[in-house]
Design a binder for these strands. Structure first.
Length: 422
RNA sequence: GGUCGUUUGGCCGAGGGGCUAGGCACAGGUCUGCAAAACCUGCUACUCCGGUUCAAAUCCGGAAGCGACCUCCA
């Protein structure tokens, strides 16, 4: 799969920031791009194979605009080029197909906006905008010195790198109209077919039931989640603790992508514990000794159930619920209440590997290059403690456990000796 | 104002005509030197008002709350 992810530059905000900090606009863009990449990496999001910049594809966007003009579905007005929505609609009846909008209804509710007088119809959108003198980002074109309309970059770059049509176009639900609707119109107008086969729209994020937004003062960045520090506009600390990248990822996976996802301390802590439980069960699996040859029915059904859930529009919450069922089976076997064959153990491990780690992209945050060393050290410490316990020297054994606890390592006594987690 | 979506137990969240996920929290129990973990048990919910149906959280109509969008910019 080839993933193409545009790096939008966002002219106005960047220009403002650049003036403020006396930097080149591209430096500002790079700063945010770098920060974004760092956060994505921590979340274990695979990096895209291509990440094109809109400003590096002005030629392609000009060509796109020209082809729409050639098709007679756009017009030049005062150096800007606008898409002729009404004419397009007469020919194709497709405008509004994605978003469920009806052109006639939009007519009645148009707000007062910039540059309306240049348009033949208020629903027309810009393909190329003539730049005002103070505009920093500007390029020459057959029509004026200016910049491409917002929707042009995705249409041009998607076609160039992914083919036309390509398979899946993603994005937030808030972009359905006008952005994605207009992308379809541009592509149909210039090529005769839609840009992609499927649209995947993810829902919004809310905080304590309220939309996350800068204007509401409840905008929390990923880095703030990771460090556990975020003050709201009244200076109140919103996060009770740091939330690790995998906690955030697991939390998001526990809701369907089309539903809104609501962040709260209570919900995030639930995810943290839930994921830790799955990871513990996975590690426990490695310690279970197989008994018997009979396979457990619940284990053999597991993989198919997980595939069914994924095939049902990526229903990751259901996949996770099956993994919790698997965790219970593992723990029951560990308690000696259930017998697992070697085949069962292999299958359980395989299902975790496939779905938790590969498909859902979770990873063990406790593992590091020092794992072997820590394991060795812990063995020594727990050995000493076991000796103390054998001598009923509770004072020493509790002291070791309490001290380890304070250092972030939990000791758990079992039938076959103690284990630890951190 | 218009269009669309949504409302599920203390919390997060699947599901979407009869079968009532899962996690967290809480309570009781088993095990244990104690604790933790684990296991067992309990907590059985679908905003409200009408309607359809033998049967509605689920379908239809309406109301309220919440949210997104309504073609400037991304």
């Amino acid at each position: 799969m080839c993933a193409d992810h545009d790096a939008d530059e966002g002219e106005d905000k960047i220009a403002k920031k650049a003036r403020l900090e006396q930097l080149e606009p591209m430096e500002v863009a790079q700063y945010y791009t770098n920060r974004y990449h760092a956060a994505m990496e921590r979340l274990n999001v695979l990096s895209p194979s291509i990440e094109p910049h809109a400003s590096g594809h002005i030629m392609e966007q000009i060509a796109l605009v020209q082809s729409i003009l050639d098709a007679g579905l756009a017009y030049v007005s005062n150096g800007s080029v606008y898409f002729d929505v009404r004419k397009y609609q007469e020919q194709t009846h497709k405008y509004g197909q994605l978003s469920g909008r009806v052109i006639e209804e939009m007519l009645a509710t148009t707000r007062d906006l910039d540059g309306q007088e240049e348009k033949r119809f208020s629903g027309d959108f810009a393909l190329w905008k003539k730049a005002a003198p103070e505009h920093i980002m500007r390029w020459p074109s057959p029509w004026s010195d200016g910049f491409p309309g917002w929707h042009a970059e995705c249409t041009a770059m998607g076609a160039k790198y992914l083919g036309s049509p390509f398979d899946i176009h993603g994005g937030g639900m808030d972009l359905i109209f006008p952005h994605h609707e207009s992308e379809i119109a541009q592509c149909v107008a210039s090529t005769g077919h839609t840009p992609c086969r499927y649209w995947m729209h993810n829902n919004m994020i809310t905080i304590n039931g309220q939309k996350m937004g800068k204007s509401l003062g409840n905008f929390i960045t990923l880095d703030e989640f990771f460090t556990g520090s975020h003050k709201d506009k009244d200076g109140k600390e919103m996060l009770e603790q740091p939330y690790s990248p995998m906690t955030i990822r697991f939390f998001i996976l526990q809701a369907h992508y089309r539903s809104t996802v609501d962040f709260s301390n209570e919900a995030l802590q639930a995810s943290e514990k839930g994921f830790a439980k799955l990871m513990e069960a996975y590690k426990t699996l490695g310690r279970i000794t197989p008994s018997g040859n009979a396979t457990v029915a619940q284990v053999s059904e597991l993989r198919a159930k997980c595939y069914d859930a994924m095939n049902d529009d990526f229903n990751t919450p259901i996949v996770i619920s099956h993994l919790f069922d698997a965790a219970r089976i593992i723990n029951q076997a560990n308690d000696g209440k259930l017998k697992l064959s070697q085949a069962d153990i292999d299958e359980l491990k395989g299902v975790f590997d496939t779905f938790l780690f590969e498909v859902m992209g979770m990873k063990d945050e406790t593992s590091s290059d020092n794992t072997a060393l820590i394991d060795g050290l812990m063995k020594i410490i727990l050995d000493i403690r076991a000796t103390a316990k054998a001598n009923k020297d509770w004072c020493t054994s509790d002291k070791i456990r309490d001290a380890l606890g304070a250092a972030g390592v939990t000791v758990k006594d079992g039938k076959d000796g103690a284990t630890y987690s951190y």
